[in-house]
């Protein structure tokens, strides 16, 4: 077994409105090892996205703490957290979220520029490598709007890999794609996991989940049954 790269300890998250307080996560503890290929599943409203937000530092727990590679991310300032996230976690969104005014390669270069860990001279080559890796090298200079949904998601994966993070987190990455395209995207994640990346994917598609190394099923904000 590898050492855990991600560790959630007693994480709870409450959302308060005028009328009521809603517990999205209830005392969740989770350990993810380096190189693990993990699916987080559950019905709508079960807390999947909230859990993902805890892992990426997009949101902070009401109670408990999140450690990624030994760093308690709740203790980082917003700016440090942004840079840390860019370096250590690659995020893939359901709706791709590419910057519409930049070309595909520029979207990737921007992520490198922000974090500044890849030497400037190597960035262009790395963009080509990444786009080749996800199979859209020929689309490098196109604007996102010129690409299909699947191609845009591949580009988003390439951007998530821009700074060579240890962890890739994807929120319903195939939720907006047809099944054939979704399969090809899942294949990319699988390949990334095989190459040693820790890949955590939120999905509500049970069939897809079967392909993962481990499935964490959430129900009403609690981990229902960890499965190997």
């Amino acid at each position: 077994m590898n050492q855990p790269i991600l560790f959630l300890q007693g994480v709870s998250k409450e959302f308060k409105t005028k009328e009521r307080t809603f517990a999205a996560l209830k005392n969740v503890s989770l350990s993810v090892e380096k190189g693990e290929y993990l699916a987080i599943t559950g019905k709508s409203g079960s807390g999947k996205s909230t859990l993902l937000n805890m892992i990426t530092g997009i949101d902070h727990p009401t109670n408990g703490k999140v450690l990624v590679d030994g760093v308690t991310i709740g203790e980082l300032s917003e700016s440090k957290l942004a840079k840390w996230r860019g370096q250590h976690i690659g995020i893939v969104f359901q709706f791709f979220q590419l910057i519409p005014t930049l070309t595909i390669s520029e979207n990737i270069l921007l992520a490198m520029e922000f974090v500044n860990v890849i030497p400037a001279a190597e960035r262009r080559n790395r963009v080509t490598e990444l786009l080749t890796q996800v199979g859209i090298a020929e689309q490098a200079n196109k604007m996102p709007s010129a690409l299909s949904g699947g191609e845009q998601q591949r580009a988003a994966i390439a951007r998530a890999l821009a700074n060579n993070p240890e962890i890739i987190v994807a929120d319903e990455p195939t939720g907006n794609l047809d099944s054939k395209t979704a399969d090809s995207i899942n294949d990319i994640f699988s390949t990334l996991a095989q190459s040693g990346k820790t890949v955590i994917v939120v999905t509500h598609e049970k069939n897809t989940a079967l392909k993962y190394q481990r499935i964490v099923n959430l129900k009403d904000g609690e981990i229902e049954l960890p499965t190997l």
Partner: peptide, 16 residues
């Protein structure tokens, strides 16, 4: 707004 969120998610700091 949403783009700012994305830029932060991919590693951009507030200053950048």
């Amino acid at each position: 707004v949403r783009q700012i969120g994305i830029l932060k998610a991919i590693g951009g700091s507030q200053f950048q």
